[in-house]
Simulated scan of single mutants.
Amino acid sequence: MSKYLLDKFLFTVDRDPELTERYREDPVGTVRWWEAEMANTLLNSTAAEKTTWLAFSDEERRALTEQDHVTLFAMGAHPFLTLTLFIAMFERDHGPMEYQLAYARAMDHVTMPYPDIST
């Protein structure tokens, strides 16, 4: 499992409005494409620089395709990254602050110590 790769996915998808919409509409296809095309590129680098070993675990892939922020947090994904991305994807479907409150309620069962979110 790679917290770095989870956070990289959340970070890069959140910063591209077209990719955010793609992930909202087709999470399975977006995760599959991103893992094949983007996972091994280096952040803030030229496309020519790549690694060859990064891949999601089956559990990570499932949580991403199901857009399951609670499981992603339990795996160590940074909560600010899931919150900002998921607000961009789902807030429009709810009234003011409804999505944020639902997000928080889904995390009510989480107690300290929280999962380590350092990368």
Score class of each variant (00 low, 15 high):
103 Y>R: 15
31 V>D: 03
101 L>M: 08
47 A>I: 11
109 H>A: 11
9 F>T: 00
61 R>G: 05
49 E>T: 14
37 E>L: 05
85 L>W: 06
114 Y>R: 08
2 S>N: 08
90 F>A: 04
108 D>S: 13
45 S>P: 02
54 L>I: 00
85 L>K: 07
70 V>M: 05
105 R>P: 09
86 F>L: 00
78 H>Q: 13
68 D>G: 08
31 V>G: 04
33 W>T: 11
50 K>H: 10
13 V>H: 03
76 G>R: 02
36 A>S: 14
58 D>F: 03
36 A>K: 15
110 V>T: 12
82 T>D: 01
4 Y>V: 04
99 Y>M: 02
101 L>G: 13
29 G>Y: 05
84 T>A: 08
113 P>Y: 06
90 F>Q: 08
118 S>Y: 09
78 H>L: 05
64 L>A: 13
87 I>R: 15
26 D>N: 14
97 M>C: 10
105 R>T: 07
56 F>Y: 07
2 S>K: 02
90 F>S: 06
70 V>N: 03
109 H>W: 05
56 F>M: 05
81 L>T: 03
58 D>Y: 02
85 L>A: 10
64 L>C: 05
29 G>N: 06
101 L>E: 14
58 D>K: 15
90 F>G: 09
10 L>K: 12
100 Q>C: 10
107 M>N: 13
89 M>E: 00
80 F>R: 13
91 E>I: 00
1 M>G: 10
74 A>Y: 06
76 G>D: 01
65 T>Q: 14
54 L>P: 00
73 F>V: 04
88 A>G: 10
35 E>V: 15
113 P>K: 04
60 E>V: 02
1 M>A: 14
109 H>C: 01
11 F>I: 14
86 F>S: 00
44 N>Y: 13
